[in-house]
Write a protein that binds this DNA or RNA. Structure first.
Lengths: 213, 213
DNA sequence: GATTTTTTCAATCAAGTGCTTTAATCATGT
DNA sequence: ACATGATTAAAGCACTTGATTGAAAAAATC
């Protein structure tokens, strides 16, 4: 029976907080243990090394997000049904919202952390995450190709890549927009942000090459 | 008369190389001076501190890019002419190509460096770069608003933000696409990449809210 | 209650960090 | 010839880095 949170959990929470705010490279063991009010040696005792702790952090939420992505996509395409581009993008993005709601983190912190994982992968993605990412990329490419038959595989890959960029930027620098414009752009909730992203990326996917309008 | 490159230049080149590859946070003074085959003290002698060196690196190319952006936009809108969204996006992106061609760096290195500057701004943008960035954001927002009068200011800001994400992702992780798909997506030159980005972002800008097709 | 087993802690390690100093050397222009 | 600035090597500074140790404390097991 634990009266307070376990040390392991304290470390994880502190690391998530600090990494979300400052990025993997800038966070030291002492930063973590001081912030978690825990002994320095605890990290190595519970996780083996700083690097392994970071791998845990990276997998903790991305894996569930990717599973949920595939699950949603499966629903869309079962029984040979052809989903729309918009539905597929929804299946790609919404899991971020779903998973954060199942966690104890705030949306902003969670999004930043996800952004860090995507943009600062601290020495490449953890080895055992690569297959999952690949499966997601392949499944969604296939679905998008069916949804927009006029596109080539190559083009779908490019535009999925761009979609990734839109998401990463929004996750990581959601507040930059606010500051750069002196608050002219409001502080919309996550749901609004997702609709904006989907509008933008859907149109991007459906664009014709060299389109003028 | 110098027979070989000046120490200052050697330091700058080595720093650009290392930062492009590993990011600001991961590069140490010794990394730089060893790589440049230069004495450790040289950095502080020529630049005052590591931080100031990094500021120089950040401004060295971003400032010219921003100036060229404004110049191109000015040409488009002179004499009260209303530019198209596509033309404006061109003015936003092409300066990256223009500037890299005027430099001595390879395209890939340059793009990665630009990506690092945008995504890892090493303790926020240098103070004297902020006004320039703001001017660019304001000018392009204004132009885009004129080009697509059906959009609100808020929406233009969001979509400019997304465009930024598309660029950053492409600059920084252009090779991720290649590796994640086992080379299924070719190795297109920079010009092709820009056309793909412009197609995608133009359509995104012209999207209607909640559009279904 | 005694005995393992797990967890926590302060202290410490070697290595690396940015930076500075001193002194010697090299190139330049006056 | 002298002065000036550039460059180097070497040493050292105070500090932080990730990791490890051995002993104490806590928890679980018997």
């Amino acid at each position: 029976m634990m009266e307070r949170k376990t040390t392991k959990a304290l470390i994880l929470e502190a690391t998530e907080r600090l990494v979300a705010e400052h990025g993997f490279e800038s966070v030291s063991l002492r930063d973590i243990t001081n912030n978690a009010k825990v002994n320095v040696a605890a990290v190595n005792y519970h996780f083996g090394s700083k690097e392994k702790l970071f791998e845990v952090i990276q997998c903790r939420y991305i894996d569930p997000v990717n599973e949920e992505r595939l699950r949603m996509l499966e629903v869309l395409t079962e029984e040979g049904r052809v989903a729309t581009v918009r539905e597929i993008l929804e299946a790609f993005m919404r899991p971020l919202l779903t998973v954060v709601k199942g966690s104890e983190m705030s949306e902003k912190l969670f999004f930043k952390l996800m952004g860090r994982c995507v943009m600062d992968p601290q020495g490449g993605l953890p080895e055992d995450m690569v297959p999952g990412m690949k499966r997601v990329a392949e499944s969604f490419t296939e679905a998008l190709l069916a949804a927009a038959p006029s596109l080539t595989t190559e083009l779908v890959l490019w535009r999925l890549h761009f979609t990734f960029g839109v998401m990463a930027q929004t996750l990581l620098h959601g507040e930059l927009l606010y500051s750069l414009t002196d608050g002219a752009c409001g502080d919309p909730d996550a749901e609004d942000q997702f609709q904006e992203m989907i509008d933008f990326c859907e149109a991007g996917f459906l664009a014709e090459k060299g389109a003028q309008k």
